[in-house]
Design a protein around this nucleic acid. Sequence first.
RNA 1: CGGGGCGUGGCGCAGCUUGGUAGCGCGGGUGCUUUGGGAGCACUAGGUCGCAGGUUCGAAUCCUGUCGCCCCGACCA
Length: 600
Amino acid sequence: MRVTTSFPLGTLRDTPSEAEIISHQLLLKAGYIRRVNSGIYAYMPIMLRVIEKISAIIEKELNNIGCTKLLLPQLHPADLWKKSERWEGYTAGEGIMFNLKDRQGKEFGLAPTHEEVITSIASEIISSYKQLPQCFYQIQTKFRDEIRPRFGLMRSREFIMKDAYSFHSSGNDLALFYERVGRAYENIFKYCGLQTVGVEADSGAIGGASSKEFMVTADAGEDSILFTQSGSYAANIEKAVSIPSKPIPLQENISGWLETPQQKTILEVCKNNNLEASQIIKVVVFLAKFEDKSEVPILACIRGDQHINEVKLFNFINKLKSSNLLNLHKIEDKKIIEKNLVNFPLGFIGPDLDNKIIKENSNWDKTWTRIIDNSASSLSKFISGGNKVNFHKVYQKYSFASKDYLIEDIRNAKKGDKIKTSDDEQLKETKGIEIGHIFQLGQKYSEKLNAKFSDKDGQLKNLWMGCYGIGVTRIAQASIEQNYDQKGICWPIQISPFEVIIIPTNLKDPTQRELTEQVYKIFKINKIDVLLDDREDRAGVKFKDAELIGIPFQIIVGRDSVNNEVELICRTNNTKLKISANKLLETFISESEIMYNKYS
RNA sequence: CGGGGCGUGGCGCAGCUUGGUAGCGCGGGUGCUUUGGGAGCACUAGGUCGCAGGUUCGAAUCCUGUCGCCCCGACCA
């Protein structure tokens, strides 16, 4: 490719002010992407080459384990999503799916994911266990109406994703395949030059039994990961389970009421009354809204020194009813409180809060659904709200087990916690960018969409399914987050748009011009991804651009041309080799081999 | 949805407090010079100042409304 005739660069002199994190700034400044709207980007030619390289790595690894590529529609009929009972949740509830009507008034959604479509198609194709297992994948644009798009391609409303769906005759076969995909993913990320960690994860709205996320560790990450140094445990904070520290027992002599004026937080109560946070039980009120329009008020209790994990709470509440839980919010809004509750002592609520404070004419359930975290359920003497404004009280011989309380893990694990009682190893915390997620879906979708096969015994059974995603555009940006310096991007060679860039310093010099053309021709003939910066600009401009766009090798054709010599520069460590043009190709091949092998 | 900020040429910004009809740097074009680290000089093109009302002899500037974008939070395969 020549910069002047076929590959304009479009680099910027200044960093656009909209970008906050380094990878986003560099993508814009180096001309890889252009913003069209909030969360919507154009991938410029140089970006497309990165996307294609990543895609090729993914395809190779997936084909290796027997997956088959196809391409599914992006416009999905609502009917299909209603069959899987996700239409309401994805449109009205979380509202993550863009949806629209055609001229006939028929409803459609722009696909955020493809379980429904692939399951309905697979069920038409697969009729016998003899055809199983089967795994289809595609690399395609997905749409999600993100509540707040940010960080460029990290959380955008339109993004490229590889999604794969596997079909099996048994849960056991699914589990085996799931592991194979996990290993293929590790290869893919390694070949992309990324440092990743696999963590246990919440399966969220997709559902299913087991799921694992692959995280690029980076400070700019939106997820928190808890892990042990030894590698024995790693989980997303949404999912992580740990052993809480021991509570400090309450003094024997303390009893009765505590006047706690204006002390609404645990910290204030502790400070003013000489208490430890672990001696207090915190009661948080939530409202759960279900797909069948029912609204259930929740009392969630946890030890004062711990935090409620709303993902765990959401999942637990979702299991309590047959209807799908659409959303779960803290009850804080004054208008909502006034409308549904009488004399609600916000900030001073205790675990024995009466059901009678829910107004008769409220459309909420008339009893609190009471849930207590494991960490607090065994406490019998503790401080909590007195259900009276400005008062807390000492609860004695209180038994949650006998008081309609559901006992469950709804607690955030945190750094410093232990994983096992027998082991002193403590959890550490880091930030991560989710670039892959694999799920064992089980039979959730095949049941809903009636996707069956004939098993060996002649019986019709539901297909077992797995699904597996990789954020292709997200990998590109996450990779920059791990590979840059003051001058710009430093691509791992596997996913770099070009392997090498040729920079002639002065094209008016006929010797240089001729040598440049000669070198370019040899590289092209040898199928090396080479970019020729044949602009008539000054050398400095071309050096800066080459560094900014991050091509791993530069060939400088300059003043040594008279001796038939050029320089080969490595972008990452800035090593310079002055070599004869005759030996350039061979040297380049061996140097680039070294770099390729670094990641495999 | 709550809080904050910003909309002025392709990019980065000044001008707004105190109204007088738009400017700087970079980038683009042409010419000459220069040529191994974002060149110099000269000329040049390019803007309904987000949009709509209002106040005023006169609005980028003041007022009202509205739209959009960015950041923090809430939220989130």
